[in-house]
Design a protein around this nucleic acid. Structure first.
Length: 112
DNA sequence: AAAGTGACGCATT
DNA sequence: TAATGCGCCACTT
């Protein structure tokens, strides 16, 4: 289960909610925008633990532009489908073009 | 309180 | 350019 007190996760989720449809952000970017440039892994954890339906966890991918999860438990195919349904297309290497789909980030960084 | 976990990222090879 | 190694952080047990 999860703690009910505000946490890094909550901040990550809130930021993820701001990613526009058809755009994506990397775990590292989220971490940076949250003020913890090295917490990319923790962001991944946050996305894995998303429970609220309004959090577009699928719009968060790794810095290489690919879906960085594997295994039946995580269902990488689902994430890819959700993105393609929004118009985010993958090249033959299974990567997206940051120039086309990368989100420039929140206009204003949220306070911690 | 210490050790373990993992949807990452980057320097190095 | 791709593969490998290691540090990183927030959270759980």
């Amino acid at each position: 289960m999860k703690s009910l007190a505000p946490s890094f996760y909550d901040a990550a989720w809130e930021l993820a909610r701001q990613i526009p449809v058809g755009k994506v952000a990397s775990y590292g970017q989220i971490a940076t925008w949250l003020g913890s440039p090295r917490a990319s892994r923790a962001v991944g954890y946050a996305m894995f633990n998303v429970q609220n339906d309004d959090v577009p966890w699928h719009r968060v991918i790794n810095a290489k532009g690919e879906i960085s999860i594997g295994g039946a438990l995580h269902r990488p195919e689902l994430q890819r489908e959700l993105l393609e349904a929004e118009g985010v297309h993958f090249n033959t290497n299974g990567r997206i073009d940051w120039r086309l789909y990368g989100w420039s980030g929140p206009r204003r960084l949220r306070r911690l």
